[in-house]
Design a protein around this nucleic acid. Sequence first.
DNA 1: TTGGTAATGAGGTACGTACCTCATAGCAAG
DNA 2: CTTGCTATGAGGTACGTACCTCATTACCAA
Lengths: 340, 340
Amino acid sequence: MRPTTKDLAKAAGVSLATVDRVLNDRTGVREDTVKHVTQTIEKIGFIRNISAANLARSKSYRFLFLLPRTGDQFLSELISRIAEANLGFASEAMRASVAHIHESDPHQIANFLGTLNRETVDGVAIMAPESPQVRDAKARLEERGIETLSFISGQIMPGEGAFVGIDNHAAGATAGRLMGRFSDRKPGKVLVIAETMRARDSLERRLGFDEVINADYPWLTMLPSLETYGEAERTDRIIKNAFASNPDISGIYVLSSEARVPLQTVTQISEARQLVIIAHERTPFTEAALLSRRIDALITQDPGHLVRSAIRIMRAASDGREVLASQEKIRVEILLRENL
Amino acid sequence: MRPTTKDLAKAAGVSLATVDRVLNDRTGVREDTVKHVTQTIEKIGFIRNISAANLARSKSYRFLFLLPRTGDQFLSELISRIAEANLGFASEAMRASVAHIHESDPHQIANFLGTLNRETVDGVAIMAPESPQVRDAKARLEERGIETLSFISGQIMPGEGAFVGIDNHAAGATAGRLMGRFSDRKPGKVLVIAETMRARDSLERRLGFDEVINADYPWLTMLPSLETYGEAERTDRIIKNAFASNPDISGIYVLSSEARVPLQTVTQISEARQLVIIAHERTPFTEAALLSRRIDALITQDPGHLVRSAIRIMRAASDGREVLASQEKIRVEILLRENL
DNA sequence: TTGGTAATGAGGTACGTACCTCATAGCAAG
DNA sequence: CTTGCTATGAGGTACGTACCTCATTACCAA
């Protein structure tokens, strides 16, 4: 049998009330009593039963995911994973909801964050580019006792605050390695397509990509990044231009999470050519493209894992617990047709 | 507030006792009463609070992992993940322990399984090759109310019983795809090294590997599998022989989970040559080899994910719940230097 | 000595569920 | 009508922890 608070009280020679005061950091206990109880906890291996505690304080976990307001397939995937997690954790009194934001408007995001309070929310996972406004708003939430988490993007500095997402430099480097090794040592130019290069995520991916290509694959030449700004006609036009002025393109790396529009254009143009194409994120579109050999590899992060990891971290923070770091590292996954 | 059993009783117009009888499948309730309560559960969206239930029946989950008795680095990794999970789930009253078996002795395994009973164990995850003895022993455990799970290997038929592990055919095919694409279209022979080809896992990996190579990479020639039987000198000898009689080997696929011994030999021989080498499982050895470019890619399954998935499945089974299938699929991961 | 305050104990109720005992209502067979 | 049975209700205790109130003790300063 695992020791309970009662056992702990007996072992420490104090009353249940004192044990309770120590466990919950209440006032009115002498310092050496606290120390003694703490030592007894170690000694008898007392482990708090969080389920029972949550039951007693009728606590439930209410988490909020702040996501961009686009129609992106990757986002839909995230949203359905959140719904799924809601079911999976339902018997543990956890409820996650989604709110949409304009990711490019830090002011609006900060405003929204300002309206949140402990009565309604225990933790917020925010998917938005870094900005001073949002950073401050997060700090203020933390002060009010609401846990915050940078989700997928928006990590200001590694190690600063909680972050759930992949290392984008590593993701780009992985794409670069595959591009190089899939190139059959044939000279050619490599086109990089991004939604915007103003986001840190994109920059890091490009950096990692270039590093590997430059170091190990001298027969490949990098072209400047094309920026689509998420506009279909623009995307179509700039890609066609790029192909017109560079007949020797041999590889394409789409580093934004929405690969659909650029790839549709590319497919039109280069039906005949042998291009190596690498994109990001698994969506119904990219999955089909991989299966039909229109693209060669995907660099992904598992949406379900992202969501569950965010929830576990927020829950642990909300309990004042530590988390298993090894479990929470989001892997840069490589998907080929064979391991879909 | 989530409805409780009390709310359910009121809503269904029955007493708490009857609700309890229905929820726990006890006798003494008229069929239409059961039906009415069940409908009310749906109607008001009642969700059982498993934490409270476990508290009330002072239930804890005791799981056992049956692992082979080798000194394999992959196994050590698994064992430390189990220890880690023990800490992580401690506050939820879960305890996982490890027992070692001789994986090649089905009779002994079956005997051991026969000694288990509900008083001490709620679920067993078994990592052992399929065999009629073990299969029967598992069936008898299930009859006694102990959950069983095929862990990593030993799945008799897909869909038959719970299984946690990767699709080995897909893993082999993934290795094949990488071997083909990394080969720069240069003709050569491919060596496949296994511990034994008598295990279904090995067969499936080889099958998947061959399929892809044969279909898409005609310039590569497959050699028959070398079997090491886990013996160091034998391994050394047969690999040297293979290189002596096939000077044009250009690729090596080590499909067993212990790549250390074969790779040490290969490194000795082929320091100078440009070989494409693909192995399985991430261990301190393979990780170092990947970083130092002695091997080109790893096909892995995440040990932490394997362990946690097994625990979640056994716990759900023990609760009579469903699990989130999407969460429990173990991915065939590809590891390069860049996404370690 | 007295008063004040900080530290501690004793004992209760609550959370949502399981499980137990006992009482009672309904119904059918004798 | 009685007997016997099944279905149901009423009420309790327990699980491990939180949180509340009130009483008691110890200690310090005046």
